[in-house]
């Protein structure tokens, strides 16, 4: 499997190569940005109170990068994760994913972007308990309209990829936490997305299973996948190649260094 080209394919569909922005310093910045935020702000209104969760975040993550977004609770990292995952929309600013501006998209278009471009790994695993592992893994393909036979094949090879070929018929309740998270990773991989977005993926795991999952991410990174990992644990963030620190709704440029943009 040539993961690099695999990962880049959907981006080409969206017409990326034509409008890749020029970088001032090609040596420092990633060659092809998969995601790019420009002055993103997000304001929530709860009751009469306006809460500004993101206050002008600009960043870019290149194809094949393994980046961690780190910050204490209340820093706005969950909000940033929702924006990056197209689960929520920006109040102002722009967000380009694989070359397409998704800031003003409708709920239906966003659902399709999530389906094709993003593979989610959640802290809570979020597997459907009534379905066997392979049915959970094929779910995004069902929403993409892939034929049942192809869905099954791709779900099987994705489960094999995460080392669960012998657990395909097990239901989530029959699997350990680490195994469940690996099923979730298989599900994130199955659509061959541009971006794997992991939200506290080790938050519910013991240290051995955490190591297991982080090892898997490293393998995926080595195979050319773009991974963005959100965490509040420094040692988890340290596994990524680049760490972006967020504090009070803004990127901490001093800590984040190059590429924060």
């Amino acid at each position: 499997m040539t993961a690099w080209f695999g990962a880049a394919e959907p981006a080409e569909d969206a017409g990326v190569p034509a409008d890749v922005p020029a970088y001032e310093d090609a040596a420092e910045l990633p060659p092809v940005p998969i995601l790019r935020l420009r002055d993103v702000r997000k304001t929530y209104i709860s009751g009469q109170l306006e809460v500004e969760a993101l206050r002008g975040v600009s960043l870019a993550v290149g194809a094949g990068e393994y980046a961690a977004i780190m910050g204490p609770s209340g820093s706005g990292k969950s909000t940033l994760m929702h924006i990056l995952g197209c689960l929520d929309v920006v109040t102002s600013g722009t967000y380009e994913l694989a070359g397409t501006d998704v800031s003003g998209m409708t709920e239906t278009d966003l659902a399709q972007v999530r389906n094709r471009q993003i593979g989610f790994v959640f802290q809570q695993f979020n597997l459907l308990p009534s379905l066997p592992a392979w049915r959970n893994v094929e779910l995004p393909l069902a929403y993409a309209g892939v034929s049942p036979a192809e869905r099954r094949d791709r779900a099987m090879s994705s489960l094999e990829r995460v080392g669960l070929a012998d657990r395909v018929e097990h239901r989530p309740g029959e699997l350990s936490g680490g195994q469940q998270q690996r099923v979730a990773v298989a599900r994130a991989l199955v659509t061959d997305p541009s971006l794997i977005l992991a939200d506290e993926p080790t938050g519910n795991l013991d240290s051995r299973s955490s190591e297991d999952v982080l090892g898997l991410f490293e393998e995926l990174h080595a195979a050319g996948r773009t991974i963005v990992l959100i965490t509040h644990e420094a040692e988890v963030a340290a596994r990524a190649r680049r760490t972006l620190h967020i504090r009070d709704g803004q990127l901490d440029l001093a800590l984040s260094g190059a590429g924060a943009w």
Binding site: G85, R114, F120, N126, L139, Y143, R187
Partner: peptide, 12 residues
């Protein structure tokens, strides 16, 4: 919520 995250549109 999960189904939506995985790509289910409101219509679906």
């Amino acid at each position: 919520g999960l189904r939506k995250a995985l790509g289910a549109t409101p219509a679906v």
